[in-house]
């Protein structure tokens, strides 16, 4: 019993000490954080004011020591996304001076991963030039870290580094770790002429996500001159790549693709079928009705749904209702009825 009491006393003393420390730290931390937020806001306002003052202000900014800290980098990145392009240009000029360049380069080379990535992100947002070798080295250094790869690629894309991107993404040792949607976002953020970038990437041996991102962007941005370059991907072994290509060709309204799409339509996966039906409706809306009508009776629900959506946008409702009625297909009738109802609702909304 004595031992138990002593043991409990001992634990209570330890816990009480921990509690007192926690309480003190909590209060001090609250006061410190509040002060830090206010100081950051003041500094941000001061920098904005100095940016308005022109050269005199710029030289004052260069002397602000707090900017040479991780917190300063955070502040710079935040500034870049909240001020107008003229101010970002001034900031870019200031941060391209030797002292800042040396500090950023040190961060990228010698500091820990989080500081290096924070610096890379700031470089990306402000579009600072001259750090490509360090960024490429870091992407390779942390090749399994998708966040490191993402931030590095973002810096290359926002700076429009076509050559560096092509070399990196098509390198035999490069392993893409970011998701498809992230890759797509990166490709779309590329700040420069995308046609040579896409052409070059599509002709090299790259990851499927990279091909798909390029192809999707070609479709979204209607880059008709690259339609021929994406055609071979309709025969890819990768289903998602074939789907993306069919969609992109649809977006481009690329007539020469019609026959190949029709051929693939005969024996395709339902997702691909759905994509081709959509593509055909865009490529030749004038004569695709009869081709795509049978797909409203497809065994897969989503194909029926998408086909119905397209048919309603293509054809006048009376003919459509008559044609569907002939089939005696209850599910097709239901889905067409819903699509027509929805169309009416959309009109009301307008």
């Amino acid at each position: 019993m004595k031992f138990l009491i002593e043991f409990m006393d001992y634990i209570n003393i330890v816990f009480f000490t921990i509690l007192v420390v926690f309480v003190l730290v909590l209060i001090l931390f609250h006061i410190y954080s509040g002060a830090k937020v206010k100081a950051n806001k003041r500094l941000e306002k001061r920098i904005i004011r100095l940016l308005d003052e022109g050269e005199k202000g710029e030289s004052k900014i260069k002397k602000i020591k707090k900017l040479f800290t991780p917190n300063g980098i955070r502040l710079l990145e935040n500034l870049a996304t909240n001020v107008d392009e003229d101010k970002v240009e001034s900031l870019r000029r200031i941060l391209s001076t030797e002292k800042f360049t040396r500090y950023f380069r040190d961060n990228l080379t010698f500091k820990n991963q989080s500081v290096a990535l924070l610096t890379t992100k700031m470089i990306a947002e402000i579009k600072l030039d001259g750090f490509i070798p360090e960024i490429l080295t870091n992407i390779k250094r942390w090749e399994d870290n998708s966040e490191a790869q993402q931030v590095g690629l973002l810096a290359l894309c926002l700076n429009g580094k076509n050559k560096a991107l092509v070399e990196l993404l098509s390198h035999k040792d490069f392993k893409l770790t970011v998701s498809f949607r992230t890759m797509q976002e990166l490709v779309e953020s590329f700040n420069g002429d995308r046609i040579p970038l896409f052409k070059e990437l599509l002709s090299r041996n790259c990851d499927t996500y990279i091909y798909r991102s390029c192809i999707q962007s070609i479709g979204n941005e209607k880059i008709y001159e690259l339609a021929e370059d994406i055609m071979p991907f309709l025969n890819s072994e990768n289903l998602n790549l074939r789907i993306s290509t069919a969609r992109a060709l649809g977006e481009l309204k690329y007539k020469p693709a019609k026959d190949i799409l029709l051929k693939i339509l005969q024996d395709s996966d339902w997702e691909l079928t759905s994509a081709i039906v959509e593509a055909l409706s865009k490529i030749s809306p004038e004569d695709c009705y009869e081709i795509i009508l049978p797909f409203v009776y497809h065994k897969e629900w989503w194909v029926r749904y998408r086909t119905a959506e397209i048919l309603v946008s293509l054809q006048d409702s009376d003919k459509l209702i008559t044609d569907i009625a002939k089939s005696n297909d209850k599910y097709a009738s239901e889905i067409i009825e819903y699509m027509l109802q929805r169309k009416e609702l959309m009109k009301e909304r307008v």
Binding site: M1, L4, I5, M8, F15, F16, V25, L26, F29
Partner: peptide, 29 residues
């Protein structure tokens, strides 16, 4: 049972519960 044991038991319950709450607050902050 000794009164010391009883008080120690209640104090321990109070302390660990409070530490956990204050610790969470600290993380929040």
């Amino acid at each position: 049972l000794d009164v010391k044991f009883m008080l120690g038991f209640y104090l321990l319950g109070l302390l660990y519960g409070t530490i956990l709450s204050v610790g969470s607050l600290l993380l929040e902050e």
